[in-house]
């Protein structure tokens, strides 16, 4: 028995045992209709085990451990999302008690879309995030270029400052910012949110742009310059194709992060008209049937990162993975 066969058989056995356990627990302990979820998971796991035995002795390069892992990963990721959907579609006055949605009512989604409060909150969030992102990226691109390409004294210090700001508990700054805005008389205005929001966007933008800059083939720029390209040509032939996509991906990530900021928005905008979306949802969650509304709005809001991910899936993963290093 070769090692790969042995490893596959072990994976099959584990998968089967896991499926068996899940199935039994589901049948014995979980009431319907969620029982079906457990049984479905159990069947998939046990089928994986069976397939593992069947294909154990083939030369195809398949890892059944990896298949098992991805199945667990899928369940782990999707069950809470399904639950969010169930909560969002629960009819008014009812409480969701099962994972599978019982009777689907879209009223919470309707409410989220037509609600003036949520709309205005979403507008605030998007507007503030947009301005803060544009400013941050405009500042971050040259800074990242200097950090990566130019000999700057205290480079490590600057980079350390960026990372420190990135990881700082932003909440600790919310109080002082609020106090400052009150004394300036700007407490509660939309535009006043932009400046504090830079605490979130600027370090993130710089940090991601450093990764973007590091992955740029700079020798190509040298070659382009050696070929005698003019400044506009360098910009068009080098910067746009090689820097553009990375900077766009970074900007999208920064935008999503700024949209999702909670602490600053909630602390700095006390009254409804200028409250950003995440903070509005906190208020909403305390009302009757609040959970439904929050879940619905959350799922709708999730469309933004989802679109970003669908448009640039590889670049986003690459950028995030490479940035943490």
């Amino acid at each position: 028995m070769t090692p790969s066969v042995r490893s596959r058989l072990w994976a099959s056995a584990t998968s089967f045992a896991l499926g068996f356990g899940v199935g039994n627990y589901g049948v014995l302990q979980v009431p319907r209709p969620d029982q079906w979820v457990w049984i479905a998971v159990a069947v998939v796991l046990m089928l994986t085990g069976a397939a593992g035995v069947l294909f154990a002795d083939t030369s195809r390069a398949v890892s059944f451990w990896a298949i098992l892992g991805v199945e667990v990963f899928a369940v782990f990721t999707l069950v809470p999302l399904l639950w969010t959907f169930t909560v969002a579609t629960t009819p008014e006055g009812a409480t969701a008690r099962t994972l599978l949605p019982q009777d689907i009512s879209w009223s919470a989604f309707d409410g989220a879309i037509s609600s003036g409060t949520l709309r205005s909150a979403a507008t605030t969030s998007l507007l503030v995030a947009l301005v803060a992102t544009v400013v941050a990226v405009a500042l971050a691109v040259p800074a990242a270029y200097a950090l990566v390409r130019l000999q700057v004294r205290a480079r490590r210090l600057v980079y350390g400052l960026v990372v420190a700001a990135l990881l700082m508990p932003v909440l600790a700054l919310a109080g002082p910012f609020a106090d400052q805005l009150v004394s300036l008389g700007a407490y509660g205005s939309r535009l006043a949110l932009v400046v504090p929001m830079l605490v979130v966007t600027l370090p993130l933008a710089t940090w991601l742009c450093v990764t973007v800059m590091r992955d740029v083939p700079w020798t190509l720029l040298d070659a382009v310059r050696a070929d005698g390209a003019t400044r506009p040509q360098q910009l068009r032939r080098f910067a746009v194709p090689h820097l553009g996509p990375g900077v766009v991906a970074a900007a999208l990530l920064v935008f999503v992060a700024a949209c999702n900021d909670f602490a600053l928005g909630a602390g700095l905008a006390p009254d409804r008209p200028s409250l950003p979306l995440p903070a509005t949802l906190l208020v909403a969650s305390r009302q009757v049937d609040g959970s439904s509304a929050v879940a619905a709005a959350g799922l709708l809001w999730l469309l933004i990162p989802l679109i970003v991910l669908l448009v640039l899936p590889r670049r986003i993963n690459h950028l995030l993975g490479r940035s943490y290093r």
């Binding site: 999302l81 909670f262 929050v294 809001w301 991910l309 993963n317």
Partner: peptide, 11 residues
């Protein structure tokens, strides 16, 4: 893999 991270923490 990144979808949960996109969901608002409050939600």
């Amino acid at each position: 893999v990144l979808l949960p991270f996109g969901l608002l923490a409050i939600v």
